[in-house]
Amino acid sequence: MISMAIPLYERRLKRFFYLLILFIILVFIVSISSLSIGPAMLDPIKVLQALAFKLLGRDVGGLIDVVAKLRLARTLASIFCGASLALAGLLMQTITRNPLADPYIFGLSSTALTALALGIILAPDLMIQRVYVVTISFIGAMIGFTLTLLLSKLGGGSDIAMVLAGIAVASLFGGVSHILLYIVQSMTKVPYMYLLMGTVSTTLWGDVQLLIPLIIVPITLSLALFKPLNAYLYGDEFAKQLGFNPASIRIFTASISAFLTATTIAFIGVVGFIGLVAPHIARFFVGIDHKFSIPTTIFIGALLTLIADIIVKAISIFIGGLGELPLGVVTAVIGAPFLSYLVIKRMRR
C-alpha cells in the first residue's frame, strides 16, 4: 500500500522549515541594510561587526556605535510592529473568515487612534505612561471591530459588506481623529500628525524595550491556539464538533488582534495593509494551517515593514525634502492595489 498522506505531510513540514530559515535570513539581511542606510551611510560589514561586538559585551566606539544605536531602535520597531500588524491581520481574516480583513481596512486603527487622541485631550497626565496609551487604544480598537461587524451584519454580512462597513467606520473615525489630533497639537505644541499615517523614525530605545514583550506575548498566545483556529476556519458547527467553542475563539482571538493593532498604534501610529498582504503571501507558501501560517506571516510582515521603511529613508535621502514621508503612505501605495486585486478576484466569482 503506497502512502499518500505521510509523504505529503513530510513535504509540507520540510517546506515550512526551509521557508522559515529563508525568511529569518532575509529579515536579518534587510535589517542590516536598514541599519546601514541613512543620512550617513554605513558599511554593512562594519554594522554587522558592531552588532556582534555589542552582543559580546565589548566596546565598539566611534560613529558606528552612535548611529547604529539610534537606528537599531527604529529597525527593531519596524520588525516588531510589522510582525504585529501582520499577525493582527491574519487573526482577523480567520475569525471573520474573510480574506479581505485588515486592522486598517476594518476601521480598528482609526477608532484606536480616536480613543488615543481623546485620551490625550481628556487626561493628558495619564497619557505620559505607555500602559495607559496602549490600554485606551486597545479599547478603541475593540469598539471599532465591534462597530464594523455590527454594521456589516446589517448589510448582509458578506465579505464585501464587511469591507464597506470597515471603510465607513475607518473614514468616519479617520476624520474624527484628524480633528482631535489637531486640537492635541494646539495643546501640546508637539506634532502628533505622524500618528495618522505612522512612522518608526521617532521610536526610542526605551519604547522598543516595552514594545517587544507587548508583542511577543500575544504572538505566543496565538501560536498556542493553532488547533482551535484551524477548526474554526470551516465553520462554527465544525469547530464545535471538534470540541472547541466558536464564540470563545472569536472573542479571545478578536481581543488578541485588537491588542496587537492597539500596541502598534500606541508606538508608531497607523500603518495599513501589512495585515492584509502578509497573510496572503504566507498562505500562498505554507497553506492555511495556523501552525505554519502564523510564524510565516510574522516574518513576512516584518520583512514588508522593514522594506517600506527603507523606501521611506531612501526617498528622503534622494529627494532631500523636509523630514520624512510617513510609513503608512508607502504601505498604502503597495497595499491598496493588492486589495483591489482581491476585490476584483472575489467579485468575478
Partner: peptide
C-alpha cells in the same frame, strides 16, 4: 466554510 482556501489534506 470555504472562504479561506484550505486543501483537502489540511
Amino acid at each position: 466554510s470555504k472562504s479561506l482556501p484550505s486543501t483537502v489534506f489540511e
